[in-house]
Design a protein around this nucleic acid. Sequence first.
DNA 1: GCCGTTTTCGGCCCGACTGTTTTCAGTCG
Length: 575
Amino acid sequence: MLAHNPDIAQRLDDIADLLELEDANPFRVRAYRNAARVIRGLGAEVAVMLKRGDDLSELPGIGKDLADKIQTIVRTGHLPLLDQLRKATPAIAAELLKLPGLGPKRVKTLYHELDVHTLEQLHRALLDGRIRALPGFGSITEERLRQALETHAAAPSRLKLALAESYVEPLLAWLRDTPHAETVAAAGSYRRCQETVGDIDILVTAPRAAPVVKRFTEYEEVEKIAARGNTRATVVLKSGLQVDLRVVPPRSYGSALHYFTGSKAHNIAIRRLGQRRGLKINEYGVFRKGRRVGGKTEAEVYRAVGLPYIPPELRENRGEIEAAAAGQLPTLVKLADLRGDLHVHTVATDGHNTLTEMARAAHERGFEYLAITEHSKRIAMAHGFDSRHLLKQIEEIDRFNATSPRITILKGIEVDILEDGKLDLPDATLGHLDLVVASVHSHFHFSRDKQTGRILRAMERPHFTVFAHPTGRLIGEREPYDVDMPRIIGAAKDRGCFIELNAHPERLDLIDAHCRMAKEVGVLVSIATDAHRTEELGNLRFGVFQARRGWLEKADVLNTRSLAALRPLLARTMR
DNA sequence: GCCGTTTTCGGCCCGACTGTTTTCAGTCG
């Protein structure tokens, strides 16, 4: 069996969990977690790297031992250390570790002192009052555990970035109205533009903290105040979103923003660099022998450790620090680099606006071109097009382009990839178009081989241009179908076609690691909204965020091309 | 387990908070 990067990373994380429970050296535990993160974010498949003879120990945080272990996983699908740890550690222990307030020490106490082997047994121990009698436990811990157990089934929900934005921006505006507040900024995973965020960190600089904390807790959306101190507070909004506020003096702004933006792994790596230079870096500043030497801006923090500024989207310690040190940071793609959108629908199928309305809205956003890509007939619920309808729309677009010089509409289709890998419309019809976007909307349950084979067959069709929302996932709602993305990306390279990064906030389908993979292989990515109404054209920014997390530069993105440069690229696929 | 312009051994980010405890271990971010 061939292990893929996420499988390898999962095994390394499992080892870290189990080692933690064994009271192993915490730095050893961290080494496994680091390695898992590095593998997860890699722009290439480890299996492929090994085949071409790459030395894994050259990767940051991976030495000879871990390189050997990873190789064993790829070769055999197993790792003796993990099997052995699993035998020695009860399954419940890893489960308990995830509960708030429980670390390795308390988990061990529960297991050994109270014989807790299931969550049910934990529950009973809580009811019997046996928990609070344990050394190191008390009535507050007992209550916390009780609550955690109640909500355990309803897994901790993370909020999609777009939804978080709708809660965060009004709150930031509210805080900006605080008298004497200077800078108000969201940090954390929100600033790093992760797909989903667990909670929100807000940083404010002000000469006095108290008025800011007061105004924060008085926000009308606040459901409950979870904590409130002199310079910080935590609230839960009515939406259930937890928000942490920290107020720092202006001279600490850069180091505080850096610290609260994270990621944790990135911060650790940066502080370590500082340490080697005799610096201490914390949220209040950069210090040498107790004397402040920087921290007003983030750039100062990076400069102190000899690095250029690293954009928040890259801060995962997945190679960005090494790239920065080598002067090889990517110049990340920006929203303003995009010249058009290559995947939208209109009212002719399941959209809500007319072709003219979509075109006008696209023009107002500064687009040079817009591809209309309706569903094909297989998607009957969406009134998908057959050949006749498509040819009719082609005429309509020709008429539009002849009379509207301000924006060019490209003739396209979102054609369904059928069960057997055929396309839902005949080649003769597709040949009339400027581009063919193809996607999977059925048979999500196929095995990896079967699903991948189906897509590869579709890709071989003469007019296949862009593979849209490549894994079909809906964040938090539908798992991706099982598909061998490295193979798909490789085939796209051979075939000269493109992969979509669907910018819909619920899809964001290409994940960051696959963006990096596409870049590495040299496959251009189309960042597209899949808009069904004019307002959704604005979702393009979420696609750009995701692309930036995937290290993409302007040149790596298909639709940063001018129309003149785009046409020959599309034409090549329409052979 | 990783790593090296003080090092191939002996370090490993740093601070705050919480709950439980009488001075601090454990947890968290």
